[in-house]
Design a protein around this nucleic acid. Structure first.
Lengths: 147, 147
DNA sequence: GTGCGTGCAAATTCTTTGCAATGCA
DNA sequence: TGCATTGCAAAGAATTTGCACGCAC
């Protein structure tokens, strides 16, 4: 999934922050992963291109990059706290339950669902957090393939 | 939120397991909480009615009770791994971002959203994990109240 | 007696914090 | 010089595991 490094660098600069080699490595590691990745996975992957990278930095960077909207946290029934590159718009992630590959989708009309929930609970709904899972096209095609 | 202890006891019995005093305490603690609760919170609450309860047991019990469908895990942007009593039907949770109170809603017509996601990503969607947050009726009414 | 269930303590894993050193502007 | 950024080591928190005892059937 693409990430516009220049744009991110700009966002950071606007806050007086920099896109360092370490941050870049973290960013690339998440961007190149075909699935959502945990801090530890990012650490391993990013180290390959920046061996002196410390785990502390990974945590700090993931936090920072989420904050500025370059990355997004995802959760799921079986994994908490993993990261994916954030698309441009408000979007949701779809995780393949077999290979963990992640895609994003943006057509998301939750109006009706949100309205129904509000009606039923009396809450004023301000945010929704939706995550779908299933089989990606590849896994779906080869459902009978052994792991 | 109500939980049918007899039914749960039955489900456990069918597996050769029992609803012990400790498990009962955990169950009640979650059921009586007005919001989603973390393992540690459950531990504290359940201890009041079962002082000899160990933290280990809480973890094991939460796991077990989720497995048999008596409890449900919830996640959110700012808290991972909390538990709420599971309603009878497939349902979703709505969390109040101010007081953490949780409600469940069951009218959930995700057909359209799921179909759109499938179309856009090529995934075969088998599960959806939706969580809403906002302000519950009480917090919404007193938005200007200090914490 | 058999096996589930338990608490305790220890081990592990994950995450955060403190701090001195580095490096860019 | 000034401040962001870093790695390391230590601290801390959360969770899991090993194990022997207790208890229900």
């Amino acid at each position: 999934m693409a990430l516009d490094a220049d744009h991110i660098a700009g966002t950071l600069a606007a806050r007086g922050l920099r896109l360092t080699r370490q941050r870049r490595a973290v960013l690339d590691a998440v961007a190149e992963a075909s699935s959502s990745v945990s801090p530890l996975q990012v650490f391993d992957a990013a180290r390959e291109r920046c061996p002196e990278l410390g785990l502390t930095t990974v945590y700090r960077t993931l936090e920072l990059l989420s904050e500025i909207g370059a990355l997004r946290r995802v959760h799921g029934p079986d994994h908490c706290e993993a990261f994916v590159p954030a698309g441009a718009a408000h979007g949701h992630t779809v995780v393949c339950s077999r290979c963990r590959r992640v895609m994003e989708f943006t057509e998301c009309d939750m109006q009706a669902v949100v309205a129904a929930a509000a009606r039923q609970t009396g809450y004023r709904i301000t945010e929704h957090f939706l995550q779908l899972s299933g089989l990606c096209a590849a896994c779906n095609a080869g459902t009978d393939v052994h792991e």
